[in-house]
Design a protein around this nucleic acid. Sequence first.
DNA 1: AGAAAAAACTAATAATATTAGTAAAAATGA
DNA 2: TCATTTTTACTAATATTATTAGTTTTTTCT
Lengths: 209, 209
Amino acid sequence: MTKPLSSPRVQRNRKAATQSILDAARAIMREEGVAALSMQGLARRMDMRAPSLYNYFNSKAEIYDTLFRLGFAMFDAHIKELMKTSTGLRDDLRINIEGYMSFALENPDLYQLCFERPVPGFVPSKESLALSFGILNQSYQRANQFKKQLNTKLTGQQIVDTVIAIAHGLTAMHLANEPHLPIGQGRFGSLIPVVLSILEQAMPLKGES
Amino acid sequence: MTKPLSSPRVQRNRKAATQSILDAARAIMREEGVAALSMQGLARRMDMRAPSLYNYFNSKAEIYDTLFRLGFAMFDAHIKELMKTSTGLRDDLRINIEGYMSFALENPDLYQLCFERPVPGFVPSKESLALSFGILNQSYQRANQFKKQLNTKLTGQQIVDTVIAIAHGLTAMHLANEPHLPIGQGRFGSLIPVVLSILEQAMPLKGES
DNA sequence: AGAAAAAACTAATAATATTAGTAAAAATGA
DNA sequence: TCATTTTTACTAATATTATTAGTTTTTTCT
């Protein structure tokens, strides 16, 4: 249901308005909770009436869906950026787990939207889901490469799924219990080194003993 | 805001009606999602009008809160029942992780209500939260006992928190991706033996090497 | 059966997302 | 710059939500 083409100038204006609606939506989600987003509240913050928003999005779900895609794109960029500094396989593991949690702390609105189900009735569109799977699947690609350097009976997918589950578990518990504490601190935040050491012990590098 | 006392007969009727409201609420939550519970839908299933429900509960939140307490009570009973069959420390670990996931699969409505945040705006009451912490804290008690039998530098609390985070992570991923598969199956369900073996390796029993 | 209590009802309020139809504003072509 | 067309914002209305107030019906007890 995209609008018909129009002049570059109109497109620019439209894009800017759309962007500022998304910014306002994120601000509300951060301040009042992801599910507290309402068309009226959003319109109020934009100095508009609610129905005007429907010139830019066909529904509230479409706003959520757009932010869902933004969230995964930002998550992908976040991890890739951190990965640039990696010094090897060991560091990859740490970066992935810390990166998962730091993304959640820096973008709690997008994190919840992408990795939890804070909005009843909202289901990401097929295309958005495909995007998210694509991003997560990159991890599997890498896993089958670095697996050769590890001394373990686990398959690449098992390794990745285990790491995802642990990163998610730690992050969910941290956000549920001590969301105000920065990464590395608190009951669950401080467990990152613990689980890293457990995982390293279970999957030693070939060459280590 | 509890009602004044009344005759035993009235109390019985009242209790029975209250219970069947809770049953209907759980059925709706299972069929349509935890957050899809509405007073009108609940009343419809009870062959009532919505306002009549307020004779039994002061608000929809109070219904959720009551089920939250029920959920933790049932979770506690579930784990305790499984623990009766335990053959030792190793089995305790397995039972706790499997028990967490099997409870989630058998009672998805209560699991989500107790361990996730599926209902925007619903915050368990102080008393309900106290109950839930009390139940979880029993794990810490036990941890400080069995810790002596383990060869690890971790504190009892660290062990318990790690196990909770892993159990939660596996369960959340399993429910999000393959909720139809029974315990032990699927990408994440089948990882239980994997994480058990990883944890056992990281915390060997004294006497083992 | 008649009085008291309990539990149901109807009607109404405020908030929600969304649609239809209309007015205002902006962009475009002469 | 003016007239036309397109774009954007508006008002009004609908259906659904939780909840409250006030009333009537049903149940309970003597």
